[in-house]
């Protein structure tokens, strides 16, 4: 990433993440047709070891693995896209890699509005719904009148 500036890296990190976290069916519905591409690395299923920290802040330890699928593609016009998605859905990984490549081409504004924006909105809605349900279970303590105060 020597030639890319920090904001570009941040933007790419965010769209790769949005594509990885997208429900595979939703991504397929938003991006049904893929442009011609060659597989630099065909979708491959493997694992990533998830780490935690002792006490939440201390020394790292291995919690356990999670399944992931990775894929790299090159569009006919030359842009290279990468994906590493949670789970074992090869079509999801391939589609996410193509979308990453498209985001580096003239198609970027179209992908951003037609694919990424709906994905981000849906993710934000899902998160807000859970947060709202959690908030409804928040305990509001009140102090009962104490004997000696009466």
């Amino acid at each position: 990433m020597s030639q890319s500036s920090q904001p570009e890296t941040t933007a790419r990190r965010e769209w790769i993440s949005a594509l990885a976290k997208a429900p595979p069916g939703r991504l397929a519905a938003l991006l049904p047709d893929l442009p011609a591409h060659e597989m630099l690395r065909a979708p491959e299923i493997g694992t990533v070891m998830v780490q935690g920290r002792i006490g939440g802040t201390g020394v790292p330890f291995n919690l356990g693995e999670m399944t992931v699928t990775r894929c790299s593609v090159r569009l006919s016009e030359g842009a290279v896209g990468h994906a590493c998605v949670q789970g074992r859905d090869k079509a999801h990984a391939a589609r996410a890699a193509v979308a990453d490549a498209l985001m580096q081409t003239g198609a970027a504004p179209q992908i951003a509005t037609q694919v990424l924006a709906p994905l981000r909105a849906a993710a934000a809605r899902a998160r807000a719904t859970r947060a709202a349900k959690a908030a409804a279970t928040r305990v509001e303590f009140f102090t009962m009148l104490r004997g000696e105060d009466a």
């Binding site: 990533v48 070891m49 935690g52 990775r70």
Partner: peptide
């Protein structure tokens, strides 16, 4: 699990930033 290649390790997860249920 033993049939799968391991691609690497995650960064330690940040439990302080957990979206808590």
């Amino acid at each position: 699990r033993t049939t799968l290649p391991r691609f690497g390790a995650s960064r330690p997860v940040d439990t302080a930033a957990m979206a808590v249920d």
